Simulated scan of single mutants.
Amino acid sequence: METQDLTKQFGHGSLPPLAVNEVDLHIGQGQVYGLPGPNGVGRSTALELLAGMLHPASGRILFGWTLLDPRRPVRYRISSRISHSIPI
């Protein structure tokens, strides 16, 4: 799997907040990859983009040689577990 300049923005206006900013990533077949970091850095958003649950503002996602087509989500063909914590 590979991403090229993957970007996701939420909101509208002249400067909408960036959740994921130009991420380039390469994960080879059979590799396990983690996304460490503090809260609010865009890990869940990046995973949701990779799973086809969100559409990127720009950039590309490739699985092997296949470009992810937003009209045909892969979320039904891959398994993911994305958890969100809610403060009590």
Rank of each mutant, 00 (worst) to 15 (best):
L15M: 13
D5F: 03
P87S: 08
T7F: 03
G30S: 14
I78T: 13
H12T: 15
T3F: 05
D69Q: 09
S44G: 08
D5W: 02
G59A: 12
Y76H: 09
G28I: 09
H26W: 01
A57I: 07
Q9V: 11
E48T: 01
M53Y: 12
D5A: 13
Y76M: 08
L47Y: 01
I78R: 07
I86V: 15
T7R: 10
G64P: 08
S44V: 04
S44W: 04
G40W: 09
W65E: 14
M53P: 03
L50Q: 04
Y76S: 11
L68P: 00
R43L: 02
R43A: 05
L54F: 05
M1R: 07
P17D: 01
S80T: 13
I86C: 08
Q31H: 14
L25W: 08
H84P: 05
H12N: 15
Y76F: 09
R75K: 15
I82S: 04
A46Q: 12
A19P: 03
A51F: 08
I27Q: 02
L15G: 06
P16R: 13
H84V: 14
T66A: 12
P56N: 02
P38A: 12
Y33I: 04
G34N: 13
G59W: 08
L25P: 04
P38F: 02
S58E: 07
I27T: 10
P17V: 15
A57V: 12
I88S: 11
T3M: 10
R71D: 09
I86E: 15
H84D: 06
G64C: 12
R71F: 02
A57R: 06
L49T: 03
S80H: 15
R75L: 12
S80R: 07
I27L: 05
L49R: 02
V23N: 00
S79I: 13
L25V: 11
P16D: 06
L15E: 13
I78L: 15
Q4P: 00
M1W: 05
P73W: 02
M53R: 13
G13Q: 11
I82G: 06
E2A: 11
W65T: 14
N39I: 09
D69V: 10
R77L: 09
A19K: 02
A51G: 11
R81Y: 07
V41S: 09
G37D: 10
L62N: 10
V23P: 00
V20W: 00
P16H: 06
E48S: 06
E48I: 01
V20Y: 00
K8I: 08
